[in-house]
Design a protein around this nucleic acid. Structure first.
Lengths: 167, 167
DNA sequence: GACGATTGGTTGATGCGACAACCATGACCC
DNA sequence: GGGTCATGGTTGTCGCATCAACCAATCGTC
């Protein structure tokens, strides 16, 4: 079976797209590390906890909301726990499970980091595109996500809480 | 100054997009590592060299074509050199500069890896989208790239060589 | 033709991510 | 009510990325 190489149009889409994919994480990490001492992933974890009922989630649930594998999340939670931003508690209903709760200190950190992060997201992405471009990006991303994570293991549906707090 | 949070539409675009950005590199890496023992970044470097005149580029030029910083590229080239896929040579015109050349062994590796990689790119991205979606993705990515790398330091213009070899 | 600034590149320390191996609990089933 | 399998999570090792510091060559300039 002979390979179908990418034609010019396909290549002209692939190259800038993959460049964005490679550069964006670094850009987000850099701003958050500089201004708040957090990784983008750490921020995401804290933010998701901050919006969860009781500021608490099970490891699996948090992993799904942060597009992470369980081992990765476990390491990160350990680090955050050492810094006092988060704490592990036993889950009453299922003794295999672990709950993670955002501490008051963690809350302060994420509330403090949020404005700068949102500003960066706006500057680099949201405000850089026209509304039509943004819709198209949403459309394409949603389609791609179905391929990348077919059963949604890493992409739990996100629901904005009633009282919006941290994005 | 009060923060402009993301509204529902913006969030509905941002969340799947950032999920794709987080998941895609891992997916590409996994396929290439499994099938060819290469990182996606290593593949990209070898592929760019394979299309360069004389299969040779200066470090800076290669860095730009692979969206990489110079320190990162330097480490990777060292590893590839140890594996005999690439070799450093002095640049005659500028004695500060270093040329990198793809060896025959490196050529074989990249030619061998290319079909599987292209198949993955098609499966996960190019063939997953409609032509219209792909055009929109190209459009948005190009715009975003201008923000992420304004002076194009990391995104040299790519030109398909006369005799197409490896994408 | 010397001095400072810029460009081109390398190196070493540190920290995060991926993967495999592992342990414990719960679910199923005969 | 003891196998078996699946689920939920942790740990250790290794590899790669990042950053800061550094060295060398070149350019500009007076």
């Amino acid at each position: 079976m002979t390979t179908r190489w990418l034609d010019d149009d396909e290549l002209a889409a692939w190259l800038p797209f993959i460049a964005v994919v490679e550069l964006l994480p670094g850009a987000l990490d850099a701003q958050l590390r500089r201004d708040s001492g957090l990784t983008h992933f750490e921020y995401l974890a804290l933010a998701m906890l901050s919006e969860a009922p009781g500021r608490t989630l099970r490891m699996t649930g948090l992993a799904a909301r942060t597009n992470a594998t369980l081992p990765r999340l476990s390491h990160v939670v350990s680090r955050l726990e050492k810094r006092g931003l988060v704490e592990r508690t036993a889950c009453p209903e299922d003794r295999r499970a672990t709950n993670v709760r955002l501490t008051d200190a963690g809350w302060d950190v994420v509330v403090d980091a949020a404005p700068g992060h949102v500003a960066t997201v706006r500057e680099l992405v949201v405000d850089a595109l026209t509304p039509a471009q943004l819709r198209a990006l949403r459309d394409a991303s949603t389609t791609l996500l179905e391929r990348l994570d077919p059963d949604g293991a890493m992409t739990a549906p996100y629901e904005r809480p009633a009282a919006p707090t941290v994005p």
